[in-house]
Design a protein around this nucleic acid. Sequence first.
DNA 1: AAAAAAT
Length: 470
Amino acid sequence: MTFADLGLSDELLKAVNEAGYDTPTPIQAQAIPPVLMMKDIIGIAQTGTGKTASFVLPMIDILAHGRARALMPRSLILEPTRELAAQVAENFEKYGKYHKLSMALLIGGVQMGDQVRALEKGVDVLIATPGRLMDLFQRGKILLNGCSMLVIDEADRMLDMGFIPDIEEICTKLPAQRQTLLFSATMPAPIKKLADRFLSNPKSIEVARPATASTNITQRLVKVDSRKKRDALRAMLKAEEVQSAVIFCNRKTTVRELNKSLQSHGFKSGEIHGDIDQSARIAELERFRAGTVSILVASDVAARGLDIKGVSHVFNFDAPWHPDDYVHRIGRTGRAGASGVAITFVTPEDAEAIDNIQKLIGQKIEMIDAPTAAAAAPTSAPAEEGRSDRGRRRDSRKDDRAGERNREERARDEPVRDERKQDERKRDEPRAARAENNGARARRPEPVGDGPDEGWNGPVPEFLSFGFQG
DNA sequence: AAAAAAT
């Protein structure tokens, strides 16, 4: 099965091939043909399954003919977070490079001016978070009665975030004659109801959860005293072959404090959470993507969907309260078949949360003791698909600043702050991504982590009975 | 127990 078998146009196939893909993922293979036949779809799939391309690709071909009129977008994609919306927009740019589609990204936290001007010119594709969309709608800047295609992405997360009333209102403003695609990782009752009400005769497509079944992410629990988490983290950052890591905390304040602490210990780190203003969030992600910082300390704003290449490690500095969040967080590593390591710090208070996580993923995660700074061993074989300075990094694991310095040097040649340069960089991005992708394909490592005795082989304490002294 | 999203 190749993309060519799915009925996509030659221009699109060319863009897909140039992006480095030739084989569709299961969700893409199942969804693209019916979407092209203008059917409604319910896609039950996690992020990381190639879900975004499963609607972006057919949409590009469907929208290729016809012209947008002022204030009347021809299609609408709803996303729960600004970052996800921006990421979908990037996908349209990447795959739509041989099409002349116009696009607008409507998200909060940024000036409305450009968004309004784009709407006035007319857009083929509107990508939005609900709040800003409703705002602009109420200001009379958008008419939705010419919008014949609707995508509701991450519907269950929209539910969590209280967006369902907004979504319903938006749905009623669209023409009844339209195509609707709904994607959700789970199907709670309110989402089913939403689908029943606003989709007609939908075809259901379900693909397996990637993070639970996938063997390419080595998962470990690390028993740690809650007062010694930072020491344990630093020790592990030094001991592990960390190409780049996302470190999740449960609270924004913890994110801020941990980032400061890491920086004061000489780590090149950045932070992202909802109290950081939008332009800084974008800049921070860009710095992380570019490798200017190798460590991103994050709240759950970054847990879902973010697709960043070469993330070798995810650390749960705090064990997530909701088991679903665990699956989403660790899915930031091991992307596209790469290997990855997910390490979760566990304090006695986390017992129930961990229990729920293990139930959800249907497996026990091996538990190890926190390493001391002196004697630390790597969890697994290094993730082979890190950034391009991976080789240098491998020889410098004692001094983890060395690799960062190299990365910094590279980054200095492509400063991200200067806007003009940033545009140039953006244009180069597809090429860079392609090179990385091909490289990854050529030397994909054996999946790690599905063997019980990999790297760590200390005794695994019976989880529920573990306790702490001190 | 939190975070996210319009201002």
